[in-house]
Nucleic acid binder design. Sequence first.
DNA 1: TCAGTATATTAGCATATGCTTATATTTGCA
DNA 2: TGCAAATATAAGCATATGCTAATATACTGA
Lengths: 115, 115
Amino acid sequence: MEKTVIELESAAQMLKLLGDKTRLTIMGLIKDGESCVCEFVEVLQMSQPSVSQHLRKLRDAGLVKERRRGQWIFYSVNRNHPTYPIVQQVLEQIPDQREKLQALEEAGLRIQCDL
Amino acid sequence: MEKTVIELESAAQMLKLLGDKTRLTIMGLIKDGESCVCEFVEVLQMSQPSVSQHLRKLRDAGLVKERRRGQWIFYSVNRNHPTYPIVQQVLEQIPDQREKLQALEEAGLRIQCDL
DNA sequence: TCAGTATATTAGCATATGCTTATATTTGCA
DNA sequence: TGCAAATATAAGCATATGCTAATATACTGA
């Protein structure tokens, strides 16, 4: 496994994207899973368009992947992104956001997205 | 050595600051040393006020320390910052910026800052 | 085919950001 | 004391960013 140097420019772009509380939380939520937009909206308590716009930025940069499944679109971390090694380390060192998804589940609010 | 969780908010703030090519380069330049403003100006090929303003942001956030030495002010990474573990890992994975300082030295341009 | 749900997109606006130009401050030295 | 060098600060401006409100698109199921 070679160690690849991450270009400064792409590193800066990725850091800028993670440098936003909303987007950093989104990445933390899907650090090893996937979630659909309605879940982000619930967890983040933000408007759907606002969440969509953040997701678009992450997707345009290639940091997340999307996968349509019926009516829902699921987002997950793109582990093939050149900067993924850093992304991963960042996500390991912030508080676990996935607990918030579990809370959703307990409240029965996650069911609608199960397909 | 306990593992301290870095708060999401402070992580986001730090990532945002590093998410700028100029500031990321500055951090890379001093990742294990210190430099004065005139060196940054030379290496980055930017105006002195612009560099000063970037340094101020880094200092206001506590990511760098400053140390006056005569006419010059030297900046270095603050290793006691709560987010330093992430900062360090980021800096380890981008191209080494210190070569640019060596180039300066070879060009004799670093002499003025030796005190 | 039509209505409902999930998501995306667009326009508009307020605020944040980064640069330049001009000026202030601090220090060293003659 | 006074000038030059290094650095900081402030004001002004153009662009970027993130939100809301409104609308468009895509899919599902009756």
